[in-house]
């Protein structure tokens, strides 16, 4: 078990290094001079540019710059924002927390909807199955920012509930905070619920035909016991894996959703930085979110092995 965790983590390290190279290289791919971008929109003299270069260490060879940056990253220093001149880490962390909350809520909503519809479709079959699959196909075709826009349209115009679109910080009002994130999380989670629903359906169908479910029925157990202990518990393992792997989609989607609902999370931070061409911030966000996705994948693998004793045995 411990060995497996270590091996999985060790395999992740080269990928993380590659990710850091891409994130670093992305900034150097810029047309023109990085120093000009750092100086902002004001036109500056050659001497000022030279000073900026020296300050940012741009006069050193590329690999050295990468080394310095990487060393900073490993000690938690992600550089300074061009726009605010403040450390990126300080600015990013509170926003990351907001995005994490939104993403987790969206994941939870997706899981609830997905498992419920997938289960219904597999157990009830017939018309319900047909209905759920049609709904899923349609939902898959509606991008989350379109869902969000339509939600804003419907709720904003026809059901103008108070404060529904105004983000409330958690520290100020925890319940108001969760309430204000419900609709954004729903628009983010709906698309992901399709994948979960389809996987739940397949898993439940697969488990239903297993002999141990027949044995459970032959034991005279009640339908709800069979559903809970025999069907769902066995079907859930692949479903949890799939949900974990959807994290990348949720993180990417949160950028759009946060912009639409004006939630001060990492997505909006990225969007603002893109408009301002604040490259250190972009670089940091790309690195941080990829790391989160990679580590989640490792966690999912480990959780899978723990939940499903059969896996560790093979």
């Amino acid at each position: 078990m411990i060995r497996m965790v270590l091996v999985r983590l060790a395999l992740t390290i080269p990928i993380l290094l590659g990710v850091s190279i891409v994130a670093f290289g992305l900034m150097r791919m810029l047309p023109g001079d990085f120093a000009e971008a750092a100086a902002g929109t004001t036109s500056v003299s050659a001497e000022v540019l030279a000073t900026t270069r020296a300050q940012l260490g741009l006069d050193r060879p590329l690999w050295e710059q990468y080394g310095i940056w990487l060393k900073g990253v490993l000690t938690g220093d992600l550089g300074r924002s061009f726009a605010t001149k403040r450390p990126v880490t300080t600015e990013l962390l509170p926003r990351l927390a907001v995005t994490a909350e939104l993403t987790l809520m969206a994941g939870l909503i997706a899981m609830i909807i997905g498992v419920a519809t997938g289960l219904a479709s597999a157990r009830l079959r017939g018309r319900t199955d047909w209905l759920v699959r049609g709904w899923n196909s349609l939902l898959l075709a509606v991008p989350n920012f379109v869902v969000a826009t339509l939600i804003v349209l419907v709720f904003g115009l026809y059901f103008p509930m108070i404060g529904i679109f105004n983000y409330v910080p958690f520290a100020k009002d925890p319940i108001g905070n969760i309430a204000s994130l419900l609709l954004p999380a729903l628009s983010l989670g709906l698309t992901v619920s399709v994948t979960i629903s389809e996987n739940t359906r397949a898993a439940v169908l697969e488990v239903s035909s297993q002999d141990y479910v027949m044995v459970a029925r032959a034991k005279g157990l009640l339908a709800r016991t069979i559903l809970g202990n025999y069907l769902v518990r066995n079907a859930l393992t692949p479903v949890i894996t799939v949900t974990g792997l959807q994290l990348a989609a949720l993180l990417g989607g949160s950028i759009l959703i946060e912009t639409i609902f004006t939630i001060p999370g990492m997505g909006q931070y990225l969007f603002d930085s893109v408009t301002r061409r604040d490259y250190p911030v972009i670089q940091a966000i790309v690195l941080v979110s990829s790391t989160i996705v990679l580590l989640t994948n490792v966690l999912v693998d480990i959780a899978y092995a723990r939940v499903d004793a059969r896996v560790s045995y093979e």
């Binding site: 080269p14 990928i15 993380l16 590659g18 990710v19 190279i21 891409v22 992305l26 900034m27 791919m29 810029l30 990348a248 989609a249 993180l251 990417g252 989607g253 950028i255 759009l256 990225l270 969007f271 893109v274 061409r277 490259y279 972009i282 966000i285 790309v286 979110s289 990829s290 996705v293 990679l294």
Partner: peptide, 21 residues
Amino acid sequence: RILDVIFAFPVFLLAIAVVAA
């Protein structure tokens, strides 16, 4: 391995960053 690296990025995030750059 190289594709794994690209795979690790959330697609949409990577797209935003590249287009922005």
